[in-house]
């Protein structure tokens, strides 16, 4: 289980085609795997290795470097509370403690019902709106304990349609229509694009012959 689905294989191939070298597609493909299963399984990594022509160890090397990739099942909702400096100054750590108590888990843990995984994260670029958190990478700003409890209730009761399950990031993907694309150049290609060459100021000596 959890190799990429046939649809996702097609998408994966399209994504690979966007890069001059297949390995460049590793991170996008790992996201794809995580979107499909909620986490990145070993099978998925092996599949990605096959698709990109690298070894599974290389896929794991890349995958494990990046925090967002989870190699084990996590909750449906990943609750990431920022405790970095701006949030700390405004109660982020207290909010984290409250979350620990409310959910009954420590950072890194998942609730028994598989609904929530809690994380204590670094700055998420909303510092002026501290304390803040993300649920599956969707922001909640200036949140206090009551706000947190309500958020959890809403998530539990299925009232937050705006938040997809863990693994889904952007719900809109770039679509590169081959008809419209300029075409990605491989790093082996040398020579400037024709349009650029045509617009370059001709060196003095060549002006005549050109």
């Amino acid at each position: 289980m959890s190799r990429l689905s046939p649809d996702n294989v097609l998408l994966a191939k399209e994504i690979i085609g966007r890069y001059p070298r297949p390995k460049s597609a590793l991170i996008p493909l790992l996201h794809l795997a995580q979107e499909q299963a909620g986490y990145v399984s070993n099978d998925a990594m092996e599949h990605i290795a096959e698709l990109t022509g690298v070894t599974p160890a290389e896929v794991l090397g890349t995958c494990s470097f990046y925090e967002m990739f989870k190699r084990e099942q996590v909750g449906k909702y990943m609750v990431n509370i920022c405790t970095n400096i701006s949030c700390q100054l405004n109660g982020g750590e207290e909010l984290l403690h409250h979350a620990e108590e409310t959910l009954g888990i420590r950072p890194g843990g998942t609730t028994d019902d598989g609904m929530f995984t809690l994380e204590d994260v670094e700055c998420i670029a909303a510092c002026t709106e501290a304390p803040c958190l993300q649920v599956n990478y969707r922001y909640e700003y200036r949140i206090d304990n009551d706000g947190f409890d309500k958020l959890i209730d809403d998530l539990r009761n299925g009232n937050r349609y705006d938040i997809p399950h863990h693994g889904t990031l952007a719900r809109i993907r770039q679509h590169l229509d081959p008809e419209r694309a300029a075409g990605i150049e491989s790093p082996e290609v040398t020579g400037k694009p024709q349009w650029f060459a045509d617009r370059e100021p001709a060196p003095e000596s060549e002006k005549e012959t050109a």
Partner: peptide, 20 residues
């Protein structure tokens, strides 16, 4: 993309995400 604004200029912009 191809032939931007009807000119001969073609440029692709590819969106990539990081992962933390």
């Amino acid at each position: 993309g191809r032939n931007i604004m009807g000119t001969d200029v073609s440029i692709d912009v590819v969106l990539t995400w990081g992962a933390g």
